[in-house]
Amino acid sequence: MAYNILIVDDSLMARTFIARALEMAGLSLSQLHQATNGQEALDLLQREWVDLVLTDINMPDMNGDELVRRMRATDLLKSIPVVIVSTDCSERRMAEMTAAGVQGYLTKPVTPEDLKATVERLLGKGSQ
């Protein structure tokens, strides 16, 4: 099984870094989608099959909190695992996001090892 992953971050360099880290992690990727905010992500999720969402919190137009809430309130999307990838390392924020329904929380700069462990924990081990 190869993964379809969506990276949501308003920073192009952050998305590039995460995409590189996923490749370096040796994960089997089928498709890597990108969106610059929560709204773009929701639009993409309506037309593309995605196994996992990696999202930042602070973004313009629609932030990561709202994206998670909307996904959890939508039948089609509520079972898709969401992992936060953020600069915000506060324990309260992590607790808030966990309560909102995210399955993982990684702090930037994320490492290929952390990404691999998180993706495989949530999706199982993929194959080429």
């Binding site: 920073s11 192009l12 360099m13 952050a14 870094f17 602070n58 953020s86 600069t87 915000d88 390392c89 506060s90 324990e91 309260r92 924020r93 702090t107 930037k108 700069p109």
Partner: peptide
């Protein structure tokens, strides 16, 4: 410019984690 902003973003998050109280919550 995007890389410079993201760099500061990461530095700020880690810095506040070190100097702020454990229960602190910030909006950026």
């Amino acid at each position: 410019r995007d890389a410079a902003k993201e760099l500061l973003n990461i530095v700020c998050g880690k810095y506040l984690h070190q100097v702020g109280p454990r229960e602190a919550l910030f909006d950026f």
